[in-house]
Design a protein around this nucleic acid. Sequence first.
DNA 1: AGGGGTTAGGAAAGGGGCTGGAGAAAGTCC
DNA 2: GGACTTTCTCCAGCCCCTTTCCTAACCCCT
Lengths: 413, 413
Amino acid sequence: MKRTSRDIRTANRYEVLRQIIAESPTSRQELAAATGLSLATVATLVGELLDLGMITEVGFEDSAGGRPRGLVAVNASGGALIGVDIAETYVHVELFDLALNVLARADEDMRPGESRPEQVVGHVAAAVGSVVAQAGVEAARVLGVGVSVPGQVDRDTGVAEYAPNWDWHDVPLLDLLAEHIAYPLYLDNPLRACAVAELWFGAARGRGDAVVVNLGTGVGAGLVLGGGLHRGVSNSAGEWGHTTLVLDGRLCHCGNHGCVETYVGAPGIMQNLRELSPRSPLLHPEDQTATIDALARAVAAEDPVALKAVRDTARYLGAGIADLVNLLNPEVVVLSSWVAARLGEPLLGEVRQAVARHALRRPLAATEIVLSPIPTDPVSLGAATFALEGALQSVGQRAVKRTQARSRTAPPS
Amino acid sequence: MKRTSRDIRTANRYEVLRQIIAESPTSRQELAAATGLSLATVATLVGELLDLGMITEVGFEDSAGGRPRGLVAVNASGGALIGVDIAETYVHVELFDLALNVLARADEDMRPGESRPEQVVGHVAAAVGSVVAQAGVEAARVLGVGVSVPGQVDRDTGVAEYAPNWDWHDVPLLDLLAEHIAYPLYLDNPLRACAVAELWFGAARGRGDAVVVNLGTGVGAGLVLGGGLHRGVSNSAGEWGHTTLVLDGRLCHCGNHGCVETYVGAPGIMQNLRELSPRSPLLHPEDQTATIDALARAVAAEDPVALKAVRDTARYLGAGIADLVNLLNPEVVVLSSWVAARLGEPLLGEVRQAVARHALRRPLAATEIVLSPIPTDPVSLGAATFALEGALQSVGQRAVKRTQARSRTAPPS
DNA sequence: AGGGGTTAGGAAAGGGGCTGGAGAAAGTCC
DNA sequence: GGACTTTCTCCAGCCCCTTTCCTAACCCCT
């Protein structure tokens, strides 16, 4: 709530690092141009990041008659970040270097019924241990672990206030995890993880206002407003899946009827397909992933039923997204998560048309609708980004002293 | 987009003045406590406002053994603000003193067909001239004129990009007005005017995230996010009236079916009533205001048809608001504009129940739903507030020099 | 090989902001 | 009148960002 001049610094630090990660190697000049900051400010921020070991100087640009520009790049091996994606049936963990390359993965399946917090924590601890061992990084170089857990989360206290899958209430998840994991921990939910991933590395980079529509088993919308994540007063903003799309429509597990989720979530898409063709061979009743995969393949083969199913889904989705466009007037709407990744361009095209039919002209003209450009799992990437943000947050004064030390020691060769 | 330390200053200046207006007279100590700023900062900001003549020192608090606190209050006569509410059939103008009391009003009716920009500008100029004359304020003391015009507006260039009532496209309204009005002009739309009015003087004061639901002939939602107005990338955020509430529902003039507006805007409410009782004596087919007034009176008299009509309206409205609560997780939802003012508590009660049925528990628990506490026309008040913000924006360096002058001249008696 | 032109980047100065503390100011109480 | 208390102003200190100046580092040309 209260803004101080330090927040400006932190935001600029984020901005510079984002830019370096996006375009490595790069020069101070380019960074200044890209961020709009002065050269002097960029230079001090770059100095801080050099001191932290997050970036390194990697040589010089060829000059055409002048002092050559020094180039900096992400120091990939300068640290490791871990992203944990806890879902209903699995725990997926990835370890990233600072260039956000995946160095190691680990998965733990959870059987139905394995829903006690201690059990979940056990799986997470095992997977985290596994990725650290696989990647062979020293413990000291792990900058933090971001954890995404479905439902409502109090990120300050680290309490999972409510997780619908397992009917958790006020589980002190971060404290439980801290007993097994010695690295700094950051907790939030998958919606916001995806949004942050897009904000740092995806289609929302550099945009003031963006909506990240999450299409998975559940559905939600991560909101980027004013250049930062919008959390709402109790950190539960973005619950878009239970917006009423069809009055008295399909029954949703939330108890209402006609929620967006029941039409465009993976089970909803299966239902759309089933209503078109009850015995479609594409349907794998117990396996959402297999069904969506089959649907994607059938669309590629121009199967008419599959095309119609995607079009129907896009109609619902487009109507919902149009409402978001009208309400929030974002620069970009990003379709993210596994369903969007698999259905890809065919879905996107239909959605664009459907949105165009429903949205008002002016907001529509200002809004781009795109697929997430993030190739890996956005949830674990976003979770890792929370850890990265955490590591950058508290850079504070110490760095200044060390800047002096640096400039004394190693003049460029 | 780009934040600088000056923005902090401006925000703090707003905050201090807001607090003084809300609670006049007050002391520097109280202001510091209320705003969270240090005493020193409050003192300099109060000094600035004293120099501007917007507030005055009005005496001292009784002390119980110490230096008594100096009290400051709004200097009501220190300036005048004009708010212009342009609507489809009328222009309503109010002149406020700095305590935001209405000193003068003027209305101009516009006949259907009188829709050329020059005609509207003529009415505005006449009404503005009238209020200035009525109130008898000197021209120099008018700090600015805020103008609210329906539709999409580019507030920087002062162009009314699109006004649906009159099918205006890219009308340079501010330039046209400037030919007749010599005061500083500020342009925006009624949605945001209402939101700003709530933010400064109403139920959104001091709240980080609020939604101001505007119930008039049209329907919209002013969004206060992160303590400030959310405008979206092309200043058209808040277009909530054309959110689809009922798939394939009532035809809306926007061309879609089932928009929120067709159920909870004044014409929509009339339709709700008509569907209940086609020959209801409450219906005044050509007069929205009269119908809503009659409905309000009938509700007060516990007329069962009227009660049912309000309940039906609240069902629709509640479903829509619940979606907003889920999506944005605001601290408060404010029901504003003339329909909300007239239907009042009965509507509010039904809406609360309807929202509770649709919204998710956690966001719901964090959200309060209230009627706007603003007794006058919120649109002209909000428009005047734009002028007030404008006057405070550019306080800059000059004030510092004058601070020295002040401290030399007038020591408190 | 050495100078001139050109560009990069560091250091210092400057401007804006907020805060904490010292000390003057203005009361009450004894 | 003096002791005590509280307010309020002013200044030093710190954090930010930017502008400006100057040196460093390179190219090219002679």
